[in-house]
């Protein structure tokens, strides 16, 4: 049968930062072809295609079931595969090899994680489930 793509609206302007991305302006209507787990969605806008940050998109017709998983306060063990220095005060600074507990997997690719007593955002792209090969 025909593939029915989900339609989203851009909530803000987004400028491309790398080759395979797609620039959008607030109000643009895009079709989402694929959603990566790390917050990048492959979209189609007229005749252009490319990756757009999920954080910049909102559903046109609110989906019946919530897209985002509920938080898991027990935490899921993940290993840091790429270090990152916090840019905003609600983010964490962590080094490669450290382990963290993932509490909430958000669609925009910034997950809520806990390290000892501190909780904050960290890019899901820089983490890997403990015990899994990359």
């Amino acid at each position: 049968g025909p593939i029915i793509l989900q339609t989203y609206r851009a909530i803000a302007d987004y400028e491309k930062n790398s080759k395979n991305e797609l620039a959008v302006s607030a109000g643009d209507i895009v079709d989402v072809v694929e959603k990566s787990e790390h917050g990048w969605w492959f979209c189609q806008l007229k005749n252009k295609r490319g990756w757009v940050p999920a954080a910049y998109l909102e559903p046109i017709d609110s989906p019946d079931e919530p897209e985002e998983a509920d938080p898991n306060y027990e935490g899921e063990l993940y290993i840091i595969i790429t270090g990152y220095t916090a840019d905003q005060d609600d983010e964490l600074t962590l080094k490669e090899g450290e382990s963290v507990e993932v509490i909430h997997k958000l669609l925009d690719g910034w997950w809520v994680v806990r390290k000892d007593e501190t909780t904050g955002y960290y890019p899901s792209m820089y983490m890997q489930k403990s015990g899994e090969k990359s």
């Binding site: 790398s18 694929e34 954080a55 910049y56 905003q88 910034w110 899901s124 792209m125």
Partner: peptide
């Protein structure tokens, strides 16, 4: 064809998203 996703993480949500 779906191109390779960017290597860097996406930006944090824009202010417009946080107003919600």
């Amino acid at each position: 064809t779906i191109k390779r996703p960017p290597e860097n993480p996406p930006p944090r949500p824009p202010p417009e998203a946080r107003k919600k």
